[in-house]
Amino acid sequence: MAEKKITLEQVRHVARLARLELSAEDETRLQADMSSILEYVDKLNELDTRDIAPTAQVGEAGTPMRDDVVSNRPVPEEMLANAPARQGKFFKVPRIIE
């Protein structure tokens, strides 16, 4: 594999979109892995799909509708029980407004 399918710069761009902090080692490894996987998936280009409609879902046609009514009882303590950091009845996060 002379030419990699994806550049290090692209790897960094995708990592930014995916909100993943990568070490230099991670970047190199992902460049190699993603390149070989993308090279493999290129085999899809052997198929002529010009007149083929895409499939997004394989379930039954239609989306069932229902009334929008509250069915659960909101219990703030339960909702907050898994919070990594909290203050009173709130999820605590680093300062977002200067």
Partner: peptide
């Protein structure tokens, strides 16, 4: 999109 079309096939 290409993959979704192949899914149809």
């Amino acid at each position: 999109l290409k993959a979704q079309k192949v899914r149809t096939l």
